[in-house]
């Protein structure tokens, strides 16, 4: 069970989150949607201590993790993995070394001890044959798959996917959607998925929250969203360029 309570976060004078509350029950798949710059990435990074709230409370399995130290977050980061939006692999390491890194740092394994496990994870995302290549040599979609493999190496109970299907071809995107569903159905993994991808939103999500102007505009099931007659939500899920929706300013203060 993950819960965010009344989270506020500003950068300079720019209030990105202004009282966001939402919770994710164990084993559920929670989607977070919203326009670019709405603060989706900022919100999910609070869970693993990469960003600290100005105000509010975050708890994980009933434990208050809002004020943990950087060291204290190590244990949180072991059970709570994240796939970053930029599919951030370390450029200076081969793909397999990237996947090994969490094993070596969190579990103190040597490079050869981590080898088999890392290989298995790469196979899971059909990337084993490229294990020795470097991130710069492969495309964005493939990097994203390796980033997913790396996030899953520690068998996390929670996974945050920040736009996991953006930049993937439709087939690979369906694969990722299935993987997320499987993690939830078979391993009771709790997922938070940030996404713009309407297809995955309506096929995979258990619950959806839409961020708008620093707050949760609607929190509900896919059906709630389909039936909503809020004009901003209609505009978003119908993908129309014109409508009442205000877009966050690109500039930052």
């Amino acid at each position: 069970m993950i819960s965010f309570e009344n989270i506020h976060k500003s950068f300079g004078s720019r209030g990105v989150l202004q009282g966001v509350s939402l919770s994710v029950p164990t084993g559920a798949i929670r989607f977070i949607i919203g326009a670019s710059g709405a603060g989706k990435s900022v919100l999910v990074k609070h869970l693993i201590g990469l960003i600290r709230p100005d105000q509010g409370r975050i708890s994980l399995d009933g434990e208050d993790i809002t004020h943990l130290t950087e060291k204290g977050f190590y244990t949180v980061r072991m059970k709570c993995a994240m796939v970053f939006q930029h599919s951030t692999l370390f450029d200076s390491m081969s793909l397999i070394d990237n996947v090994k890194l969490p094993l070596r740092k969190h579990k103190n394994l040597t490079s050869s001890e981590a080898e088999n496990e890392a290989m298995y994870r790469l196979e899971q995302v059909q990337m084993a044959k490229d294990a020795r290549r470097y991130p710069a040599d492969i495309g964005d979609g493939l990097r994203k798959r390796v980033a997913i493999a790396r996030a899953l190496t520690l068998d996390p109970k929670y996974v945050v996917f920040d736009e996991p299907t953006t930049g993937l071809d439709p087939l690979a995107a369906v694969n990722v959607d299935q993987l997320i569903r499987e993690l939830s159905d078979e391993f009771n993994v709790t997922s938070i998925v940030v996404s713009h991808d309407l297809r995955s939103i309506f096929t995979v999500a258990d619950q959806i929250a839409m961020l708008y102007n620093g707050q949760v505009l609607l929190d509900g099931t896919p059906d709630d969203f389909r039936q909503s007659d809020d004009s901003v939500i209609r505009q978003f899920i119908e993908g129309r360029a014109t409508g009442p929706m205000e877009f966050p300013k690109a500039s930052r203060g």
């Binding site: 990074k45 693993i48 990469l50 950087e70 190590y74 980061r77 072991m78 993995a81 994240m82 970053f84 939006q85 930029h86 951030t88 692999l89 370390f90 450029d91 890194l101 969490p102 740092k105 969190h106």
Partner: peptide, 13 residues
């Protein structure tokens, strides 16, 4: 900006 520093912290590095 490409979140590699975040990813390092995520890996306990």
């Amino acid at each position: 900006v490409t979140e590699q520093v975040d990813a390092l912290r995520m890996c306990n590095a």
